[in-house]
């Protein structure tokens, strides 16, 4: 486990090291590439603010009004049976629909229950391993006149459901090991 943990610490520095080598010894002026990308990233994250503001307010309302607790407690027996904490319900609900809505929910869950708690780790793994299924599939087929996507939705939705289950199992193992 210690080795795996060390590897995980190496990933990010290795990528940065590789980029530094490219910038130092590359044939082109790669630092201008860096600046160009960084500028796009900066603009992109600033552009997130208006929709994030709306969504974080709505998620915060949903949780602080007590509605989330009531829904979650309805679902708690079923969630308990499959080993998923019911606190994750808003994230599981919104994840397939919208990226910014799920970031907003994820942020709210992390700040409520703690980033290093079982719930926080589960939410992080779900957030990183699954995607906005409905948005992605609609997007991919939008340029063509394909309307019958056959088993694309059932398979993708099943995988994101499976991803939630697996995230909770793996997070539990991970927390026991660390």
């Amino acid at each position: 486990m210690e080795i795996v943990r060390k590897i995980s610490l190496f990933v990010l520095p290795c990528v940065v090291f590789l980029v530094a080598i490219i910038i130092m010894f590359g044939k082109k002026n790669y630092f201008s590439s860096f600046l160009q990308g960084a500028k796009a990233g900066f603009k992109g994250s600033i552009a997130l603010l208006p929709s994030m503001c709306a969504l974080i307010v709505s998620v915060s309302m949903f949780i602080s009004s007590g509605a989330e607790r009531v829904f979650a407690s309805f679902l708690a027996p079923a969630f308990d049976k499959i080993g998923v904490p019911s606190e994750l319900f808003p994230l599981i609900l919104l994840r397939p629909f919208s990226g910014s809505a799920s970031i907003a929910t994820y942020e709210e869950i992390i700040s409520l229950y703690g980033a290093d708690s079982f719930i926080g780790i589960c939410a992080s793994v779900i957030m990183a391993s699954s995607d906005t299924v409905i948005y992605v599939i609609c997007m991919y087929f939008s340029a063509t006149k394909i309307r019958k996507t056959r088993h694309a939705f059932p398979v993708a939705l099943f995988i994101s459901f499976f991803c939630v289950l697996l995230s909770c199992i793996v997070s539990r193992l991970f927390l026991n090991m660390i």
Partner: peptide, 15 residues
């Protein structure tokens, strides 16, 4: 992190 990471990725993409 978005600013930095996008810059890093742009270098990797251009390379």
């Amino acid at each position: 992190i978005m600013t930095f990471w996008n810059g890093v990725m742009q270098v990797l993409m251009d390379a």
